[in-house]
């Protein structure tokens, strides 16, 4: 019994990491109708920038706070140079240009930080483990779950209870209408885009102590993040959360129950969802 509970925890923890990375991708899609394959790069930048801050200051809180903020800077550059001018270019052009930017980002990481993976230790304050029905479980992983849930709750509050959130929802629903009603999309779009990048950066720095910090990490996370967004239905917060949970569950329990199929479970889930519901599970727009 405790075995399955621990595996469920593993699944939820993986889901929360995916959620942090995917939420920006999904919101940008829903709001601006932009497919941004370069999004994975911000996840990698978050991890690397966090590492650099940690090396420079030795402070974990600073690393975790500054990494997402610093990730917003390349985010702003990408918005200004590519996304803003491609908004009306159609998905085809967006796919190519942002894929190109992703390639550039990998080489930038290699040039700046080298090919050898870097060490990002678990913060000492969260290094221990707690007993879950007789099985020790790392505190840090539990913290990741808590962080993911907190971010989801905060985003939900902002979107549903604030003026800014109402503007975002209106713009997702119908950009022209929102603009006509006085929503300044010229300001709203870059702010949301950069926040999405910062969340991916947060995902990256949070993942760093669990995984390894290496140049390919942004490419590796891209496909799972896309799967989350598409399974959930583009552009809705609930959809992204549900998508992340489903993908995390499929990946974890696929690995545990059918070792011969592990790695395929996520894609089987994606295929099944799209065959049955060609627009994802909870699309923002019908």
């Amino acid at each position: 019994m405790s075995y399955w509970i621990v595996q469920l925890l593993n699944a939820v923890q993986a889901s929360m990491l995916l959620f942090l990375v995917a939420v920006g991708l999904g919101v940008v899609f829903g709001l601006m109708n932009v497919v941004n394959l370069a999004h994975g790069a911000f996840y990698a930048f978050g991890a690397y920038l966090g590492w650099t801050v940690l090396q420079a200051t030795g402070s974990f809180p600073l690393a975790f706070l500054l990494a997402p903020a610093l990730t917003g800077l390349p985010g702003l550059a990408v918005y200004a140079l590519a996304v803003a001018r491609m908004q009306r270019a159609g998905h085809l052009a967006q796919v190519i240009a942002t894929l190109g930017l992703l390639f550039v980002s990998v080489e930038a990481l290699r040039a700046l930080w080298g090919d050898i993976p870097l060490e990002f230790p678990v913060p000492p304050a969260l290094a221990g483990s707690v007993d879950i029905l007789g099985t020790p479980y790392p505190v840090y992983r539990l913290s990741v779950v808590a962080l993911g849930l907190a971010v989801a709750a905060l985003l939900w509050l902002v979107l549903s209870r604030t003026i800014a959130g109402a503007m975002v929802r209106a713009a997702v629903d119908n950009v022209e209408m929102a603009a006509a009603l006085g929503v300044r999309t010229g300001l709203l779009f870059p702010v949301v885009f950069v926040l999405g990048c910062a969340l991916a950066g947060l995902g990256g720095v949070v993942a760093a102590p669990l995984l390894s910090v290496h140049p390919g990490m942004g490419v590796e996370v891209l496909v799972p993040a896309l799967v989350v967004v598409v399974v959930g239905g583009l552009g809705s917060l609930q959809g992204t959360l549900v998508g992340a949970l489903l993908v995390g569950l499929a990946d974890t329990f696929g690995a545990v129950m059918g070792p011969q199929l592990s790695g395929a479970a996520v894609y089987a889930l994606l295929a099944a969802v799209l065959v049955l519901r060609p627009g994802g599970l909870l699309p923002a727009r019908s």
């Binding site: 595996q7 593993n10 993976p117 390894s212 290496h214």
Partner: peptide, 29 residues
Amino acid sequence: QDFAPYLTQAQATGAEALFAFYAGSEAIA
């Protein structure tokens, strides 16, 4: 990159030892 499900599984077998082969970034994780 996340070996948690497999590690939990390996632990549940009650074996005395774990043999592993990994390299590069997978090894670190």
